[in-house]
Amino acid sequence: MDKFTVLTAIAAALPEENIDTDKIIPARFLKTTKRSGLGVHAFDGMRYRPDGSENPDFVLNQEPYRKAEILITYDNLGCGSSREHAPWALLDFGIRCVIAPSFADIFNNNCFKNGILPIALPREVCTQLMDDARQGANSRLTVDLARQVIIRPDGKEVPFDVDPLRKQLLLEGLDDIGQTLQHEKAITTFEERRAQAQPWIPHIVLD
């Protein structure tokens, strides 16, 4: 997982509520065997017209937002299915930070597991940041995770909350696995103790 420290980037405003994971990545793309490559299908139904051409009205089809790394929406982003393909699609498109008044639980978890920082801020602050985003290529936002602030183009700072454990994982670029493997000695000890106490637990070995 890539570290998340300081991100200065173009932000795209998508002022909608209840953007569900089906909208982020429709079900027909779940038969893939990759995490990568889903970016082209992100927001498929909003991004493309029925004939497959780009919908010019959709923000991520417009310059400079094709290069957006921050996405700002309204409430309950990522509701619906638990599919991890949703954050995979966002990440593959280039999104590293999502900002909204609220997130669905599982989507929120899945973002952290994939190096995307979800930031919850009051709706009126989201609206202000959307206004910043609409100012174009020179109007970038800076997200400083260590200091827990968003720096707006005019230099004003917006503080945000983040779970301390998860913040640490993002700053160090450690995924859960990396964190757990720091406890590998405890796992090995557990396995040895258990093998003695319950030697009857079978190993799965095929002929």
Partner: peptide, 10 residues
């Protein structure tokens, strides 16, 4: 992600 976690750490 948890599937991978179990594979790597049991």
């Amino acid at each position: 992600s948890e599937v991978e976690h179990v594979m790597a750490t049991q």
